[in-house]
Nucleic acid binder design. Structure first.
Length: 617
DNA sequence: ATAGGGTTAG
């Protein structure tokens, strides 16, 4: 590997802009990095009492490093043993080989270890090169220490190295993953303005990905077209990123359009491209299209991998088709793919959705254990949720308390699930206690909109509206920005507790908060009007939905049809039933039973009789 | 540099 050493200073204008990043960073220069104690995992071979008896010869070492830089070592100790031996070689192996060792550690996601090894290399006087620096910078970014990464950049420049496009791509990705897209953008524009580097396809892909993750699909597409204009050809990753983004925005047909476009341009989709699309199609239950993509993959000789299979297992599980999910696992094992914790979590969730929590527990305790797959916090959270939904919150709490014993830390999602479980059983005293003592006082937790929604809904359903409203004020003053779901919860809770006017005023003021009602919000308000006998208002709201780019779904129709019955608008109900069926929706259980109840009532309204004649067999 | 799993309102 060439050492790009130079005595020339960086262009001064760029240094000015660079100083923007470096000043204010509370970190020492690289020569005296302050390492956290957990960075110092590396020590001499004293930590390795059983060194490998047959250590590779020179040629073997090269072979070994080449392989492990691509796959990672099986065990951290093995990697450290190799490093230790390398240090004792005379002459010392080349930087290239040390760089491969670092790459292996990165593959193993042992970033702090890699940083320690890098530091050790510096201390031992090994001449590091720009690639090694880049690896270390990348590790700092993965450790969420972009500040250290920038200090190391400064050190790299001070030592006379030219940071390359990889360096800057790494830093841009670091800034984006640390949720600082503005700094990333600034770095990108400065790099172009001061002609420090020519952005490559990875630079664009990184930024496009950042934009997609932040729901700025339009800007992402703009950048996508811009890069083409600048003569930077998009590749499979570019298209996969955009396709995934479109799928997550539920714009699957546009995503399929991009698949078509890339194929026409001769850019070949890979398993990632197809997996994103299959996920998008599964979300819409477009099974035929899923099968078509799977056979297209087959034709192109692209094999589904553990991601693809997990997507399918998840989709089957959500459809209640648990046997098919099990079959997929069987198939993947037979075709040599190893299910992992994500695969089994999807399966467990499938069982829980069917109410078969004990079967889910058996997956964790038997199948996973047998296959040597270690359950994670999510595995337990899925089970906890399963038990909560079955109103077995005490069993859920048992599992919750088991987590630390398994070396796992519950997340906010785990806590939210338990909180919901208590409220679901009407055990609001324990819910409040849990929230106050276990959640609010827990510094490690960041309460989110899910938490507030669960709490508000729980309080309202248990008829503590005043408390709910006062909590809502508390959350506002705590700086949490309520989303549409929070308002939906309040609108529903208020109207069901006799505060229709308050609910209506919240609904009407949504635009002032910069929020737009969605189909659930509309449906709840329609339900509220119907319940209070304000059928005309309900109908008016229903009609106005479309103009606001919101389309009624099966629940909306069912709510309004039941509203018709309550308000004796039988003719109106007939029209709506037709309309609902024309849209491919059907009556739900509660509408159907109301229809049947109408048969037995003494109600002699001819319109009702006509309705029954038309819609009952 | 890109893909998979859990928690909120009708």
């Amino acid at each position: 590997m060439m050492m790009k050493k130079t005595n020339k200073l960086m262009s001064s204008s760029f240094l000015v802009s660079l100083s923007h990043f470096i000043t204010g960073i509370t970190c020492c220069p690289p020569a005296s990095f302050q390492f956290h104690s957990h960075f110092l995992l590396f020590s001499t071979n004293k930590s390795n009492p059983n060194p490998k008896p047959h250590f590779p010869t020179h040629a073997n070492l090269q072979q070994l490093l080449l392989e492990k830089s691509k796959t990672g070592f099986d065990k951290l100790d093995d990697a450290l043993a190799v490093f230790d031996k390398m240090l004792h070689r005379k002459p010392l192996p080349s930087v290239f080989q040390f760089a491969q060792l670092l790459a292996a550690l990165v593959k193993m996601k042992r970033y702090s270890v890699a940083v320690s090894v890098f530091k050790d290399m510096c201390v031992k006087g090994i001449h590091v090169d720009i690639v090694t620096f880049n690896t270390a910078i990348n590790c700092f970014c993965h450790l969420n220490r972009v500040d250290y990464a920038f200090s190391l950049l400064a050190g790299t420049i001070k030592r006379g190295f030219h940071p390359d496009v990889v360096t800057y791509n790494t830093l841009i990705r670091g800034l984006i993953s640390q949720d600082d897209p503005a700094e990333a953008q600034l770095l990108f524009t400065n790099l172009i303005r001061f002609k420090v580097i020519q952005p490559d396809v990875v630079t664009y892909n990184t930024i496009i990905n950042g934009l997609c993750k932040r729901a700025h699909a339009c800007t992402a597409v703009t950048l996508f077209r811009y890069m083409e204009k600048k003569g930077c050809k998009p590749n499979t990753v570019t298209y996969s990123t955009l396709i995934d983004c479109l799928c997550k925005l539920r714009l699957v047909d546009q995503a399929l359009g991009l698949l078509h476009e890339m194929t026409k341009k001769g850019i070949t989709p890979d398993v990632i491209t197809y997996s994103s699309l299959i996920q998008g199609l599964c979300d819409f239950n477009r099974w035929q299209d899923v099968n078509q993509l799977l056979s297209e993959m087959n034709t192109r000789n692209i094999s589904p991998d553990v991601h693809t299979f997990s997507i399918l297992i998840d989709a089957y599980g959500k459809e209640g088709m648990i046997n098919d999910a099990e079959d997929v696992i069987e198939f993947m094992i037979q075709s040599g793919q190893h299910p992992d914790v994500v695969t089994y979590n999807a399966l467990m969730d499938g069982y829980c959705l069917r109410g078969e929590v004990d079967k889910a527990l058996a997956v964790l305790e038997t199948t996973m254990k047998r296959r040597g797959i270690v359950p994670d916090t999510l595995s337990y959270t899925i089970l906890i949720n399963g038990y909560c939904k079955k109103r077995k919150v005490d069993r859920a709490v048992d599992l919750f308390q088991q987590l630390p014993r398994e070396g796992l830390t519950p997340t906010i999602e785990t806590y939210n699930t338990i909180l919901q479980g208590y409220f679901l059983m009407g055990r609001h005293v324990e819910a409040r206690k849990f929230f106050k003592e276990k959640m609010m006082l827990n510094k490690a937790l960041t309460l989110n909109n899910y938490t507030c929604s669960i709490l508000l809904n729980g309080l309202c359903q248990n008829h503590f509206v005043v408390e709910a409203l006062s909590f809502f004020d508390t959350m506002l003053s705590a700086g949490l920005i309520p989303n549409i779901c929070i308002y939906g919860t309040l609108i529903d809770g208020l109207s069901k507790n006799g505060h229709l006017e308050k609910a209506r005023s919240l609904f009407d003021n949504l635009p002032l908060k910069g929020l737009r009602p969605n189909v659930k919000t509309y449906t709840m308000m329609i339900q509220a009007y119907c319940h209070d006998g304000l059928f005309d208002e309900a109908k008016e709201l229903f009609v106005s939905m479309e103009a606001n780019d919101c389309f009624p779904n099966d629940v909306t129709y069912n709510v309004l049809i039941r509203g018709c019955f309550h308000n004796k608008k039988y003719k109106e109900a007939g029209v709506l039933i037709h309309e609902m069926r024309a849209h491919g929706f059907s009556s739900d259980a509660s509408t159907a039973s109301m229809f049947l109840d109408g048969l037995e009532s003494k109600e002699q309204d001819p319109a009702l009789l006509a309705l029954q004649k038309e819609f009952l067999p």
